[in-house]
Design a protein around this nucleic acid. Sequence first.
DNA 1: TCAGCAATTTATGTATACTAATTTAGCCAT
DNA 2: ATGGCTAAATTAGTATACATAAATTGCTGA
Lengths: 245, 245
Amino acid sequence: MARPSPRIEVAHEALRQAIIEQALKPGTKLPEDVIGEQFAMSRTLVRAVLAKLEAEGLVDANPKRTATVAQPTLAEARDVFEVRRALEAEAVRLVAKRWQPSFADELDSLLRQEDEARARQDERVSIHLAGEFHLRLAQLSGNALLERYLRELITRCSLILAVFGRPHSSDCAIEEHSALIAALRKGDADGAVAIMHSHLGAVERRALLGGDDEKPAALGDVLSRYAAAVTARQTTKPPRTANQP
Amino acid sequence: MARPSPRIEVAHEALRQAIIEQALKPGTKLPEDVIGEQFAMSRTLVRAVLAKLEAEGLVDANPKRTATVAQPTLAEARDVFEVRRALEAEAVRLVAKRWQPSFADELDSLLRQEDEARARQDERVSIHLAGEFHLRLAQLSGNALLERYLRELITRCSLILAVFGRPHSSDCAIEEHSALIAALRKGDADGAVAIMHSHLGAVERRALLGGDDEKPAALGDVLSRYAAAVTARQTTKPPRTANQP
DNA sequence: TCAGCAATTTATGTATACTAATTTAGCCAT
DNA sequence: ATGGCTAAATTAGTATACATAAATTGCTGA
């Protein structure tokens, strides 16, 4: 999976981070030339970057209008969590099957870091590490494709949390991660899968607040998004802002 | 999910079809200018098409060399089937949950067509319809993301079958599809999931022949691929051929 | 003051030109 | 002949130019 150019990767990763950390809020316009200026590349390359981000579901891109940071709908959010649950359960199953003691060390180490960040009140690092835990688990499954899909899903969950979640709601409870490791350690595959299921159920509930169904949620989407927007604060000057209060 | 240009879609779909039908054999070089000539578009657009195909796992693309039709390894094939099993089981679960009698009609109709094609000895249509059945099931799940992933996985399975499978081995048994519909019809969700599991297990076994493990399969990969190459015959003049005996 | 239209500006769609790297072919030496 | 070395031809990487469509601004008239 070698990529054509390192510069594309750099810009891609930078935008990814900016989006999931909410430095670029959902709905923010991403004009090709502005981005090209920032990363010192031509629109040709910017286009490739945006195409990737769109494929990942992180930006919305319509035929002849400026790409924007994605604003996931409630229906999309539900879909993402549904698929994530299925794949992450499979990942746990696979990890349990090829379990080795060294795996526990790896996961424990991440868990400790996560705990420390939480203690330090370091929101950003804490959220990032929670994602890392799940991603590492996917890697330990030994299935590269599963890892790719889960990386995408975990990233999209971050964005969904940014759009729908309460400000400052942490997305993963450390105890749940801890219980998962314990189950894996004693070889309880089914137990581990069950824990992962309920863990992700909890994450989804925390992320989606009231589980409104389908249509009537449309207005709710907008309002919760608005609430998130006024709460957040701009860090560096973003290219442009879509909806200002 | 509106795409930038219809022309890109056309070329994308055409290449997709050509690849999964083996009109372009695995390993075949896909130079940008040759493709651009065929579809009357500039390399700029061809590049976008190839990027998509690479993301789907249908073409191999390394930094500065000509893209080629993908040659899945045994390890990749295993990964694809593993993820497909997990997601397709989830799809069946979802379809069972929102089951409606009209679903049965839809699936039955596909099944009938499949049966007729088989009776007509129409390999190409038969294989295509088998894929359609699984795809339609994914659509009935009501989860757009799940559908997208499964479309990708089903396509890759076709390519895998082309590389590893015996020539003329059909990939899906009609009775298995039939049993699945029956289980869904009587509301037996768990039964349906079980049938799907064993069905995909059977498909994988048929596709991968001898289930060699990991490392020692490396040589096997090459040889089975070689066997496939000498068996197949060129239809239209392909841009170029990678390995000629 | 506001609605609606026109001119302007901005941003995308696509082709093409130029550069740099890789592959191929031919040639020399062993 | 065979192995490697150099030159020529291919082919990808990237920027840029031009055409076209969308968004915006400002103007005019009710």
